[in-house]
Computed example of a mutant assay.
Amino acid sequence: MQNTAKNPDRITDLLPWAALIAPGVVLNKDGSYQRTLRFRGPDLESSTDAELVATTARLNNALKRLGSGWAIYIEARRSQAQRYSEENRFEDPVSWLVDLERHELFKRDDENFESHYYLTLQFMPPSEAANKLSEAMVKKEGGKKSQDSKPKKLSRKKTAETSKAAVRNCREIR
C-alpha cells in the first residue's frame, strides 16, 4: 500500500492517509491505523503536587499497557477566544460585579486564548517477518521452542484478525 510516486504531483501523494475504514479510524499507506481525539485536560497550573503525581501515574499506567507497535502524538493549538457574551446572567449584585470584571478583562485584545489539545494514536500491526522471527525465538514453558524449531507461516487470516483488533481498540478509546 506504500506510495510509489517518485515525483509527487498531487497533495494526496504527500499525505500518509489511504482510507477512512471506520468512524474516526484512518488506514495509512504504510498499513498502520490512526485515530485522533480532541480532549480537554485539567488545569495543571492550579494543581497540587499530589494531584500532579497522581495524574502522571494514571497517564503512565495507561501508556505502558499499549505494548509495541504504538505511536502517540500530542498537539496543542492556541486560538484567540471568541467574544464574551453581552447578556447579564446574574441577578445578585456580587455575582454581577464578578461577571463585570471578567467581561472587562475579556475585552482586551490579544490576551484571551483557548487551548485545544489533540491526541493521535497510531498502531502498526506486526509484519509477517517480525511474527515469524518472534515465533522462532520465543520458547514455551519448560524451555522448549514452540512446537518445532521452524517458524510458522503467518496466514492472511491472522493478519486480518490483528488489524480488526486494532480497529476495535481504537473504537473503544472514544
Rank of each mutant, 00 (worst) to 15 (best):
N3Y: 01
T4R: 11
P8Q: 05
I11C: 00
I11V: 06
T12H: 14
L14K: 06
L14E: 05
L14I: 01
L15G: 05
L15A: 14
P16I: 02
P16M: 01
P23R: 08
G24P: 10
L27E: 05
K29S: 15
D30W: 13
D30F: 12
S32R: 02
Q34N: 07
R35P: 03
F39H: 10
F39P: 09
P42N: 11
D43T: 02
E45A: 13
E45N: 13
S47E: 11
D49N: 15
E51G: 13
L52G: 10
L52M: 09
V53P: 02
A54D: 09
A54C: 09
T55K: 04
T55G: 06
R58C: 03
N60L: 03
N60K: 12
N61Y: 13
N61D: 13
K64L: 06
R65Y: 12
L66H: 07
L66Y: 10
L66I: 04
L66C: 05
S68G: 04
G69T: 01
A71Q: 08
I72Y: 14
I74K: 08
E75K: 15
E75H: 14
R77W: 09
R78N: 00
R78E: 00
S79A: 08
A81D: 04
A81P: 00
R83H: 13
R83V: 15
E86R: 08
E91A: 08
D92G: 12
V98P: 11
D99M: 04
L100Q: 11
L100I: 00
H103E: 05
E104D: 09
L105H: 13
L105N: 06
L105T: 06
D110I: 04
D110F: 11
D110K: 13
E114P: 07
E114W: 14
E114L: 15
S115R: 11
H116K: 06
H116V: 02
L119Y: 07
F123H: 13
F123S: 07
M124L: 14
P126E: 00
S127P: 13
E128A: 07
E128P: 07
A130N: 03
A130K: 04
N131M: 15
K140N: 12
E141Y: 12
E141Q: 09
G143C: 12
S146Q: 03
Q147S: 06
Q147P: 00
S149P: 03
S149T: 08
P151V: 01
K152E: 09
L154N: 06
K157G: 14
K158W: 08
T162D: 00
S163C: 03
K164H: 06
K164V: 06
A165G: 15
V167T: 09
C170K: 00
R171F: 02
E172Q: 05
